[in-house]
Design a binder for these strands. Structure first.
Lengths: 342, 342
DNA sequence: CTGAAAGCGCTTACAG
DNA sequence: CTGAAAGCGCTTACAG
């Protein structure tokens, strides 16, 4: 009764069915090839014993791991939940496991990456972090062949890796053009973290749209943020202290927009009467804020789905080279942006 | 130049160093046991070849997988990001990989679970979903031994599984007592999804606190929600249409509270002047809403950390039986709750 | 302190 | 259509 039950192996099934392990294996992975009678016997033996294949063993033999690892810069950031959901939904039906690692957790970011680059860990990688050590990724860097990799959301300048991203500059242009179209002449920007490619692209888009509209680009109106709520609130304090304030702000993330709005509202400022705000991402709560937040929609589930498809394509050879998939963005005008006060 | 580099194996290193594979293996996992000279030679060979252990192979041999799987009901729900971050941060330094699966993704919820219960997939499971098929979990159900499991956040009535959760009823009592203490006599509740254990516990706490305060428990003031923003907004429409409205609402999630507040504000209702609102969770944006949201704080990172520790404890035998860790909650009074209008 | 050998649980050419 | 055998890349008693 209390005896430890040893997990049942393919050997047990073979013995039970009176066939070889090869036959059992065939019934599991290529049933058509085995005689109906034999197959039935094996299937019965499988049912009777409750056999389930041992994945580590199968994977070792097949020289694959059945796992894809997603490397995210910060798992605690809810921005990634929908993306990972898309990844998971794509991987799961194709029989792959999703391994998730936080580049902040490992001994050091580089260490994490190197570990997963090692063989026998994952069949492919999705990098959501453009700041990993480039040296590790140079084709033929270490002595071993690297598993297929795609970089999603972010990218690495000058490194030809399969890539899925959103048209960040276009998103910024859309936001700024929207504000200019409403009649704003003094438009500012809360940026993402310094050095980040998304930050640069959105700044570039902002400048381009400002120039296009014939508006001034004043450096003092570029507030340094880091995508977080707190950095939006911090920018709000700078904005409040300003002699000559921009009448509209494009924020590089919805979280910063929410942080900004919360902080200025606490100081008695009315949005959009006193200042118009446009975010980026279209996080779920954006539509439920007061006022509902105008923003640039970025389809996060799609990013995850496409990134997953791309690695799978690299693995099965369907995808070669370093394709770039740039997903479109869309402006969603809600109530946080309006014509400036007369 | 273009030749495919075969990954280097322990054999290559052994040959290179002029020792047996056993010695190489020992240098990697128990260096103290091998002579200094030999060790140096092996280490040099490892460096020269760029050898990295093949994890599948090691794991098969060691009869472990090195992975823990987290089964979440909905990966897209940002509620889990911080929890998973805590799990990852705990697992990573202990050398475990984190496998994440969405119970909605698989063929069916039960199928997913069964798959991960199979051997060779994971060394342990953390269930964040209390609605999985109980039959699969009954000790000794199938014919095979089950891997260690802990259930976190939720739990399963009458099933003795190691468990980490928060004191949900106490949280509800705190929230309702807070509102009663402010002078509210008509207090309502927006519930979680029907049938969920969290929902039940928070309803029970609400009723208990209402009774304790000598207040009426009116069924019409219990709005059916499902934790989502939209369900909060939906409840707001019901509330707005009511002849006799509660003056205060305890919402079983911050998202519902935000959805409720957004919707009533859009209808010209002022919070907290016209209605006080308390949420549950203390999500990051709670402090940045207007008004900042009063809520019951639930330490999500800690839940993840403790759940991970508990499975690891089950695996290494440190933890036995079915311990229950109930984490305390805390009321955070912000500006969305105040004394009712005179 | 080190090596030869067995074996983790599978899969897959290779014969027949 | 099926089986015997080799082998995926490691680790670990067992000898010495």
């Amino acid at each position: 009764m209390t005896e430890m039950k040893r997990p049942v192996t393919i050997q047990d099934v073979a013995r039970e069915a009176g066939v070889s392990t090869a036959t059992v294996s065939r019934v599991m992975s290529n049933p058509g090839i085995v005689a109906a009678t034999t197959r039935a016997a094996v299937e019965e033996a499988i049912a009777r014993t409750g056999y389930a294949v041992h994945h580590s063993a199968r994977n070792l033999r097949r020289q694959r791991t059945g796992s894809i690892v997603a490397l995210v810069p910060n798992l605690a950031n809810p921005f990634f939940s929908q993306i990972l959901s898309g990844v998971s939904a794509t991987l799961s039906p194709r029989g792959y496991h999703l391994l998730i690692a936080d580049t902040q957790n490992g001994p050091q970011a580089g260490g994490q990456l190197l570990h997963y680059l090692g063989h026998g860990v994952a069949d492919g990688l999705i990098l959501f972090d453009g700041t990993v050590e480039r040296a590790h990724l140079a084709p033929g860097a270490g002595d071993r062949p690297l598993p297929p990799m795609v970089i999603a959301c972010e990218w690495m300048e000058g490194l030809a890796l399969p890539n899925v991203r959103v048209d960040n500059a276009a998103g910024a242009r859309l936001a700024v053009a929207h504000l200019a179209g409403l009649g704003h002449r003094r438009i500012g920007h809360i940026t993402g973290p310094a050095g980040n490619v998304l930050t640069e692209a959105r700044i570039a888009g902002t400048r381009a749209a400002l120039a296009q509209a014939g508006l001034e680009t004043r450096e003092a109106w570029f507030f340094a943020g880091d995508f977080s709520l707190d950095s939006g609130a911090f920018a709000a304090r700078e904005w409040l202290a300003m002699a000559e304030r921009p009448t509209a702000l494009f924020c590089a993330s919805d979280e910063m927009a929410a942080g900004f709005i919360g902080a200025v509202q606490a100081a008695g400022v009315e949005v959009p009467r006193d200042v118009s705000v446009v975010g980026f991402d279209n996080i779920e709560i954006a539509a439920h804020l007061t006022p509902p937040l105008s923003t640039v929609r970025q389809q996060r589930t799609t990013i995850g789905v496409e990134a997953a498809r791309m690695v799978l394509g690299c693995i099965d050879g369907t995808v070669t080279g370093a394709p770039e998939l740039v997903l479109p963005v869309e402006l969603i005008a809600r109530r946080s942006s309006a014509a400036p006060a007369a």
